[in-house]
């Protein structure tokens, strides 16, 4: 176990360096710099000396591989630099954006997992019945419905036409004059539509996953044995089949972890939700290099950790899997 972890972490660090190197090179080669983006504003006028001064301050005067080494050195020491645009530390920016993203991702993940298990089990156990086929068709259609299309449809229908939910944003204009209970309610009210948009897709995917695994398990010999020795169908389902479908499900849970923090660029963009995804989109258009790098780093670290966790979980849940001897 220990040697497996050490090896995986070593590979992970190398992967991380490669990823950040690639992204750093790409964003430094985008047309325009943060300074030229500022200059598009006709009110901003810089002298030549000022531009040179700013370039030196932002590290833009160095070739990008050198600037990357500089960035990496600071990042290893926990310093992700300062946002050009917001004039505050990148760590600060990320922490500020983390709260809103978690407000969407935590409920959405919980809802998806909580609902997908019973739905998937129902569909798997009643395969071929009329209800199951209707349920599976609906789930399949939801799985194929792009989240940004759904978000626009919901905005059109529930926010513009019926005006039941706010169109976008995280709080009302009158938010500051509300009591704290009202403020919580206000957040939830704003979070409702984005949470739905983030949930339904993974709900459909997860329940299809549970169903497929259950069907695979139901074909195994030990299920036939359990039936043959006269166990009740309920007992066969829950004691023998269901527990074994949890093994691949645990891996799935592990792999969904990055979405907890990463947020959805598109959904946050549509609902103007001030989370990590929207920040990433804005910082790419504003050429705010340190913020792009900071968020990329967070995403990649989360992805690597979740892959590692999925493997470890798998070994913990399934005693047949041994991590050490390959």
């Amino acid at each position: 176990m220990i040697s497996f972890l050490v090896r995986r972490i070593a590979i992970g660090v190398v992967t991380l360096m490669l990823i950040t190197f690639i992204i750093f090179g790409l964003i430094r080669n985008m047309p325009g710099t943060p300074i030229t983006m500022d200059l598009q504003d006709p009110e901003v006028q810089f002298s030549k000396e000022r531009i040179a001064q700013l370039e030196a301050a932002y590290g833009l005067d160095k070739p990008w591989p050198l600037a990357y080494v500089h960035w990496l050195g600071n990042a290893v020491q926990g310093d992700l630099g300062r946002s050009y645009k917001q004039k505050i530390g990148v760590t600060r920016v990320i922490f500020d954006r983390l709260g809103p993203t978690l407000l969407l991702s935590v409920p959405s993940l919980f809802l998806a997992f909580l609902l997908s298990i019973p739905l998937g089990i129902y569909a798997g156990a009643n395969a071929g019945s009329r209800n199951e086929r209707i349920l599976s068709t609906i789930l399949y259609m939801l799985y194929s419905l792009p989240s940004f299309v759904a978000a626009l449809f919901l905005q059109l229908w529930l926010a513009v036409y019926w005006e039941w939910f706010p169109l976008e944003g995280i709080q009302s204009n009158t938010h500051n004059s509300m009591s704290s209970t009202q403020q919580v309610f206000d957040y939830l009210w704003h979070a409702f539509l984005p949470v739905i948009c983030l949930t339904y897709g993974s709900l459909a995917y997860d329940s299809r996953f549970v169903r497929a695994n259950l069907q695979e398990v139901l074909r195994q010999d030990y299920i036939r044995t359990a039936k043959a020795k006269g166990l009740s169908p309920r007992r066969v389902m829950w004691q023998h089949a269901f527990r074994n479908t949890l093994i691949p499900f645990v891996t799935l849970v592990g792999l969904t972890l990055p979405s907890l923090v990463s947020g959805s660029v598109i959904i946050e963009g549509i609902f103007s939700w001030p989370g990590m995804g929207l920040e990433l989109l804005q910082s790419i258009t504003e050429r705010d290099y340190p913020v792009v790098m900071g968020i990329t780093l967070v995403y990649s670290v989360m992805t690597l950790i979740s892959q590692l966790l999925a493997d470890v979980f798998y070994a913990v849940v399934d005693p047949r899997v041994r991590l050490d001897n390959n």
Partner: peptide
């Protein structure tokens, strides 16, 4: 296999947005 792992770990949308933004 290592190359595949690296490409899989790069957040897809970040990579695509960065690549697209590079093109003039």
């Amino acid at each position: 296999s290592r190359l595949i792992e690296v490409v899989m770990c790069i957040p897809t949308l970040v990579l695509i947005l960065a690549l697209i933004a590079v093109i003039n």
